[in-house]
Design a protein around this nucleic acid. Structure first.
Ligand SMILES: [Mn+2]
Ligand SMILES: [Mn+2]
Ligand SMILES: [Zn+2]
Ligand SMILES: [Zn+2]
Lengths: 126, 126
DNA sequence: TCTACATTTGCAAATGTGTTGCAATAATAA
DNA sequence: TTATTATTGCAACACATTTGCAAATGTAGA
C-alpha cells in the first residue's frame, strides 16, 4: 500500500503549481533539503504509476513531468507539448489535440506529440 | 567548407541503407575500426546540419538517426515515428502524416510525433 | 604538384541523467 | 504499541553525450 510521505506530497504540489513541465534536476535543485536526488526519481515513478503526473521526453532526451488532469484509471495524453529550443521549457498544450491514423500491425500504447521552436516568452525577448 | 571524409561517407551510407533509425552506439558497434565514438557523434551533428539525416529522440531519451528524403534547405518532418518499448527500435512512418493546429503565440520550427508500444516484429513474438 | 590552413579526428577526461544494492528509517495496519 | 514493509539516503554504477587539446588530414589556392 502506498504511503503518504513528505517528499511525495511536496513534489506533487510543486508539479501541480508549475506552469511548465519540470525535470527531476529542477525539482531537486529547488528542494535541496527535501530529499536525495534518487528519491526524486523514485517519487516521480510512483506518481506516474498512480496517474497523478505524466512524463514528457523533451527533444533533448531529458524527462519532464506535468500534472495529469483526467487520468484516474489509465494515462490518456493525446495533447500537444511544446518544447522551447531556447529556454528548454516544456509546456502542455492541453487544448490542442492531434489527429493521426494508427499504423497497421503496430500496437500503440502511448503517444508523444511535441512541437519545438520558440515559446511566447522567448519570442517576446527576440 | 565541409570536407568529404570516410567516416562521414560510410556513416551516411549506413543510415541510408538501414530500415530503422539507428543510434550512435549502434553505428559505432558495427564500425569499430572506422572511427572513434566521439567522431560518430560529430559526424552525425554535421549530417543533421546539412539536412542529410534527422534526429529522433526515443522515449527512453536516446537519440536515433534516419535519412532525410526531401529536406534540402530545412528539415521538414511531419511524419509519424514509432518507438518499440520492447526492442527499442525506432521506425519512420513516412506515409503517416499528422494533423494539428499551431498554437497561438508560439513559433513552431520542428515537429516530433512519436507513437510507442509494440512494433510488428515484437507483436508477432508475443 | 606543393603548401597553407581550416576542418576533422583520436584520446582522455568530464558532465549529466538515470539506475541499483543495501542497510537504516519511518508510515501504517493490526 | 508493535510488526510489517514501503520509503529513504548513500555510494556506486551504467550509459549517453560533450569538451579540450594536440595531431592528422582534406582541399583551396599558389
Ligand atoms: Mn502534457
Ligand atoms: Mn523520420
Ligand atoms: Zn522559451
Ligand atoms: Zn519491437
Amino acid at each position: 500500500m502506498a504511503r503518504k510521505t513528505e517528499a511525495k506530497r511536496v513534489i506533487l504540489e510543486y508539479i501541480r503549481k508549475s506552469e511548465k513541465a519540470v525535470s527531476p534536476a529542477e525539482i531537486h535543485h529547488s528542494h535541496k533539503e527535501l530529499c536525495d536526488r534518487v528519491t526524486v526519481y523514485r517519487v516521480l515513478d510512483r506518481l506516474v504509476n498512480e496517474h497523478k503526473i505524466h512524463r514528457i521526453v523533451n527533444t533533448d532526451g531529458v524527462a519532464n513531468y506535468a500534472a495529469c488532469h483526467s487520468c484516474s484509471t489509465m494515462h490518456q495524453h493525446d495533447h500537444l507539448h511544446f518544447s522551447c529550443e531556447r529556454c528548454k521549457s516544456v509546456t502542455c498544450l492541453e487544448n490542442d489535440r492531434v489527429e493521426f491514423s494508427v499504423p497497421n500491425n503496430y500496437e500503440v500504447k502511448e503517444v508523444f506529440f511535441t512541437l519545438s521552436g520558440l515559446c511566447p516568452d522567448c519570442l517576446n525577448k527576440s
